[in-house]
Lab assay of single mutants.
Amino acid sequence: QTVVIGDTTYHLNNPEAAQQIAKELAKKYGLKVVISGNTIKLK
């Protein structure tokens, strides 16, 4: 699972954790979560 935040890319072996982290950050910073395949992007 790949999480992309701005110009930073994180690789996590746990998809659920990756999605949870993405949701928390999106909520905290008012970002939009875009999931395509096994890549999660925060914009």
Rank of each mutant, 00 (worst) to 15 (best):
E24W: 15
A22L: 12
Q20T: 10
A22P: 00
Y10R: 01
N13T: 11
D7L: 12
A22E: 02
L42M: 03
V3H: 02
G6P: 03
Y29V: 04
G6F: 14
T8C: 15
K27L: 12
G37D: 05
I35R: 01
D7W: 15
K27C: 10
A17P: 01
K41N: 10
T9C: 03
N38P: 01
L12A: 08
I40D: 01
G30H: 07
S36R: 06
V33T: 01
I35Q: 05
Y10K: 02
V3K: 01
V3N: 01
T39L: 07
I35K: 03
Y10N: 03
K43T: 15
N14Y: 09
P15Q: 09
I21K: 06
K23P: 00
I35T: 03
V33N: 01
I5P: 03
N13H: 11
T2L: 10
Q1N: 12
N14T: 13
S36D: 14
L12F: 15
T2H: 07
I35G: 00
V33F: 06
N13A: 12
K23N: 12
K28A: 04
A22Q: 02
T39H: 05
K23W: 13
Q20C: 15
K27G: 04
L25K: 00
E24C: 15
E16I: 10
Q20A: 12
G6V: 06
T39F: 05
T39D: 03
G37S: 03
V34A: 04
K43G: 10
T9H: 07
I5R: 03
Y10P: 01
Q19G: 05
H11L: 08
S36Q: 11
T39N: 05
I5V: 07
H11F: 13
I21Y: 11
H11K: 05
A26K: 06
H11A: 05
E16K: 09
K41T: 15
V4D: 03
V34S: 07
H11G: 02
G37R: 01
Q20G: 03
E16R: 08
G6I: 09
S36T: 11
L31I: 09
L25H: 00
N38K: 05
I5Q: 04
P15V: 10
K27H: 09
V34N: 04
L25C: 07
T9V: 13
A26R: 06
L42E: 02
K28C: 12
I35Y: 07
I5G: 03
T2V: 12
A22D: 00
L31A: 06
K23A: 12
A17F: 10
A18W: 14
V34L: 07
L12K: 01
K32D: 11
E16N: 07
Q19K: 09
H11W: 12
K23S: 10
N14G: 07
A17Y: 10
G30R: 04
G37F: 05
N13C: 15
A17W: 10
K43D: 10
A18C: 08
E16T: 09
Y10S: 02
D7A: 12
L25N: 00
A26S: 07
L25P: 00
